[in-house]
C-alpha cells in the first residue's frame, strides 16, 4: 500500500506467470495511509473473506504499523450497525516476491479483449504453446498441433486510419488493431509462450474492452489491461530455444 493506492502481486507455483494488480486510491470511498505498508497474505483466505460481502456492502480493510493481520470489516450499506469482522493473518512469502524490472518494449499492440480471449481459447485447443509475432504491418498469433499437423493462426493488421477505432464492441472492425499500435513499434519481435497461461490472462476481459500485448525478444510477455481504477498486468515467462 502506498499513497497512490494498492499494488498486489501474485505468482503461480512454477514461476511462469506473475500478476501485478494496481488499484488506485480513487477506487476507494476513503483511503488513509500513514506510511507505506507491505503485507503478504494467503490469497485463498482473503478471497474467502471478500466473498462473504454482497455487491452493495461496504468493505473496510485495516492494518496497523506492526500488525500481523489484515482486518476486513463488512458492513451492510443500509444497516450500518450490522458489521462482521474477519482477520486474515499475514504469511511469510519470503522468496516468492519478485522485483519486476521495467524494460523498454520493442512492440506493443492493443486489441479488443474479447477477441483476444477467443484467440487464446481457440489456440489452446490446438497446442500447449503459441508463437506471437509483431511486425510493422501487424501481429500474428500461431499455434501448431504437432500430432495432426493442424495450424491455427490469428492475424491482426495495423489499423490504417485512426477512424477504425470504435468504442462500441458492435462496431468492431474485423481484425483491426487499434491505432496506438504504431506508436510503440520499434522492431519486429517474436515470442513463444504457453497457451495455458495466455488463456488465464485473457479471462480478465470483463475489466476492459481493450488489452495490450507488449513484447521484447527473450523477455517475459506482458499482457496489460488498463482501466479507470487501475491496471492489471500479467507477465508470462517465454519458452526459449535450447
Amino acid at each position: 500500500c502506498s499513497k497512490e493506492g494498492i499494488m498486489l502481486q501474485g505468482m503461480d507455483e512454477f514461476h511462469i506467470s506473475l500478476v501485478e494488480f494496481f488499484l488506485s486510491k480513487r477506487s476507494f470511498e476513503s483511503y488513509a495511509l500513514c506510511h507505506d505498508l507491505c503485507m503478504s497474505l494467503p490469497i485463498d483466505s482473503l478471497a474467502t473473506v471478500l466473498k462473504k460481502a454482497n455487491d452493495d456492502d461496504v468493505c473496510t480493510l485495516k492494518a496497523g504499523h506492526k500488525a500481523k493481520v489484515l482486518t476486513v470489516a463488512i458492513e451492510t450499506r443500509d444497516q450500518p450497525w450490522l458489521v462482521s469482522k474477519h482477520d486474515v493473518p499475514f504469511i511469510d512469502l519470503g522468496s516468492e516476491y519478485l522485483v519486476i524490472s521495467r524494460i523498454p518494449y520493442d512492440a506493443k499492440i492493443t486489441v479488443w479483449s474479447t477477441r483476444f480471449a477467443r484467440l487464446a481459447h481457440e489456440l489452446h485447443q490446438l497446442s500447449g504453446s503459441l508463437d506471437i509475432q509483431i511486425i510493422h504491418e501487424g501481429a500474428r498469433f500461431t499455434a501448431l498441433d504437432e500430432g495432426s499437423g493442424k495450424k491455427g493462426c490469428f492475424i491482426f493488421r495495423r489499423a490504417k486510419v485512426v477512424d477504425e477505432y470504435r468504442d462500441s464492441e458492435d462496431d468492431e472492425p474485423a481484425g483491426a488493431i487499434i491505432h496506438e499500435f504504431h506508436r510503440y513499434f520499434h522492431k519486429a519481435t517474436s515470442l513463444r509462450v504457453s497457451t495455458k497461461y495466455l488463456v488465464h490472462a485473457s479471462k480478465r476481459a470483463p475489466l476492459s474492452s481493450k488489452v495490450s500485448v507488449l513484447m521484447k525478444e527473450d523477455q517475459p510477455l506482458l499482457v496489460q489491461y488498463d482501466f479507470y481504477e487501475g491496471v492489471l498486468k500479467f507477465y508470462i515467462a517465454p519458452r526459449i530455444a535450447d
Binding site: 505468482m11 512454477f14 514461476h15 511462469i16 506467470s17 506473475l18 522468496s95 516476491y97 519478485l98 522485483v99 519486476i100 524490472s101 504453446s129 513463444r192 504457453s194 523477455q219 517475459p220 507477465y235 515467462a237 517465454p238 519458452r239 526459449i240 530455444a241 535450447d242
Partner: peptide
C-alpha cells in the same frame, strides 16, 4: 526444442 523459462531468470528477488 524449446525450454520453458522461469520468471526468476528475468526478475530479481529483493
Amino acid at each position: 526444442a524449446f525450454k520453458q523459462k522461469s520468471l526468476t531468470s528475468f526478475f530479481s528477488k529483493p
